[in-house]
């Protein structure tokens, strides 16, 4: 009994105070952390239980020297066996319901519209109001490969809830039709991220977002698989050539966080990182303006590499620059792009 109480207390304490997660910088992150803390509590309990039984057995039940007899033959105990079938069953049921809930809260599921969440064909059929966007999309970030025009959706033009119809984590239900949603098109390529802001025409090598406003990312890839990951947001989505996936989140903490490519994409996979900058609203506007001015000055579609972490990403800059020069060449570059990086 006493052991049980101590075990529970220790588990709860450790489950809340493990200090294993990085800062939470999006509205979604605390949800994931809550789930993780719960699972950590259960895990700690199970861990101590199992290791405890093993250690006690090893000490208490070890064979004494000279004792050659067998132990008492206990074969089974039905109530006990039912108990240890039922408890894990209840625990995993609880965890999956909780996970389902969190997932829903993050906008992973839209119950109204799940019939559309099945793949590219339905998506492109269902979503074609996005045609107008093609014009505002700089060629560099357009999905290059397939014949399918991925619909870079314009939220206000479509009455369909966008989140549901695509793959990835979508927006939370009450935010779906929010006109203030900021859409950014994301393209992963060997070995860089390109962010395009369809509303303003800004193209950047970093993601800049305003605090507290919902952001919707349309993610695709130009060559091989990549994955967009921001640990502080607890969000990840693969970038898949020929498909478009969505990720939406609301940044909740100003600062700079790494954007990491989490899917093996070639030799420089480990160096394919950039950062996301969460600004206050006014700083964000200032940034957009500065980018627009920059392009107006003739640096058409120049990539905002100003603050790129040069020590890591140096070798990328010539490559990234070249995209701005001849966007339509990208198609031909791949798969040969692997040869494109200068020796570092």
């Amino acid at each position: 009994m006493l052991i049980g109480i101590v075990l529970t207390l220790v588990s709860i304490w450790y489950g809340q105070n493990h200090g294993l997660m990085p800062v939470a910088a999006s509205k979604e992150a605390p949800l994931v952390d809550g789930l993780f803390n719960t699972m950590m509590t259960i895990s700690t309990g199970l861990f101590i239980l199992v290791q405890g039984v093993l250690i006690i057995s090893a000490i208490k039940f070890r064979r004494r020297r000279g004792d050659e007899a067998d132990a008492e033959p206990v074969h089974g105990n039905i109530p006990l066996e039912i108990l240890w079938t039922a408890i894990p069953a209840i625990l995993v049921l609880g965890i999956s319901i909780y996970s389902f809930d969190v997932y829903n809260e993050m906008g992973g599921i839209d119950p109204m519209n799940h019939s559309m969440a099945h793949g590219k064909s339905e998506k492109s059929v269902a979503h074609m109001p996005g045609a107008a966007i093609a014009a505002t999309l700089p060629a560099a970030s357009e999905p290059l490969s397939t014949g399918m025009t991925a619909s870079a959706s314009d939220p206000s033009a479509s009455s369909q809830p966008i989140a549901s119809s695509n793959i990835g984590i979508g927006s939370t239900p009450e935010q779906q039709n929010s006109p203030t949603e900021l859409t950014v098109n994301v393209a992963g390529l060997q070995y860089a991220w390109i962010f395009t802001y369809p509303d303003t025409g800004v193209v950047s090598g970093e993601l800049h977002v305003p605090l507290g406003r919902e952001v919707l990312l349309n993610i695709t890839a130009n060559d091989v698989l990549h994955a967009f990951w921001v640990p502080e947001f607890r969000l990840k989505q693969d970038a898949i050539p020929g498909r478009q996936s969505e990720l939406s989140f609301t940044p909740s903490k100003e600062g700079e966080y790494p954007v990491i490519c989490a899917e093996l994409c070639g030799a420089y996979h480990g160096a394919m990182r950039t950062k996301v900058v969460v600004h206050s609203a006014s700083d964000y506007d200032a940034w957009i303006t500065s980018q627009q001015v920059a392009s107006a000055e003739g640096l058409q579609q120049a990539i905002a590499t100003s603050a790129v972490d040069q020590s890591v990403d140096q070798f990328l800059s010539p490559f990234v620059q070249s995209i701005g020069v001849q966007p339509d060449q990208l198609t031909q570059l791949h798969p040969a792009a692997g040869h494109y990086h200068p020796a570092s």
């Binding site: 789930l35 895990s43 199970l46 969190v102 640990p231 989505q237 899917e263």
Partner: peptide, 20 residues
């Protein structure tokens, strides 16, 4: 230990963070 971390990564929202 490995089994329990397996159940953790099976939780979709958490796996989205720790996958890969």
């Amino acid at each position: 230990v490995g089994g329990i971390s397996g159940v953790m990564v099976a939780a979709v929202p958490f796996d989205i963070h720790v996958h890969d």
